[in-house]
Design a protein around this nucleic acid. Structure first.
Lengths: 122, 122
DNA sequence: CGGTATCCTTATCGATACTG
DNA sequence: CAGTATCGATAAGGATACCG
């Protein structure tokens, strides 16, 4: 296993950078966590998330599909039905993310306080 | 502890979003992991990381300082000496990140393969 | 229904010159 | 030495009209 520091390698594709690109964007993580509770159609997902535009949902799902986090299934019906669900990879990815969420919950106050203190000391 | 999904709350500052903003950018995580091995001066950090501009290093360090991940110490000397080091918060943050790095290492091949497969199926 | 294309705005990144 | 200011390039995000 490489450390965070070792991951800084310019000569070849970097695992942690690929992962960060996927969670660093605005919507990927939210889409993944929404899909955690089951299979969704496009417009259902749109309503479920609420404040995402169909443009961004479309882009995000396509990326997640490309990287193997999400499966897209098209049913040959009229009107068309398309369903999205997590792959094993997508599901397994949410495990390490739980650690991060837990950390964020535990330490958010410290961060907020640090910001307030910083501003106060200007 | 809130789930990823619960963290999607538009009405108030979101812990996980604050954290993602910090790791989603280009340099924060790399700076933090570099500082893991000790205390560094500005220009040393610049050389150590190698491909970061002083502009970006400056901005990144300031953000990390604001959020309480990093301590900035100025020594009243000529020429000036400024040292950066991790706070307890900064150090503790790297713990959950190790899970993510481990996951990235284990699953990077699957992601790369998924991308290749996706492109092949166009 | 499930998208894509278009266009626009904003945020991020980066090089470089300059400063205390 | 340790930055900040300025400027330009590029990418990300978003509203909306259109399409199969």
């Amino acid at each position: 296993m490489s450390s965070l520091r070792d991951a800084h390698d310019f000569e070849q594709p970097c695992p942690i950078r690929d992962v960060l690109d996927r969670i660093g964007d605005q919507w990927s993580l939210l889409v993944l966590s929404t899909l955690e509770s089951g299979t969704f159609r496009f417009n259902t997902l749109l309503r479920e998330i609420g404040d995402i535009s169909k443009q961004m949902l479309s882009r995000t799902l396509k990326q997640l599909e490309q990287d193997g986090f999400v499966t897209r299934t098209v049913y040959a019906e009229v009107p068309p039905r398309v369903e999205y669900t997590l792959t094993d990879l997508g599901r397994s990815f949410l495990q390490p993310m739980q650690h991060l969420v837990a950390w964020a919950d535990e330490n958010h106050r410290t961060i907020v306080d640090a910001r307030a203190h910083y501003r106060a000391s200007r």
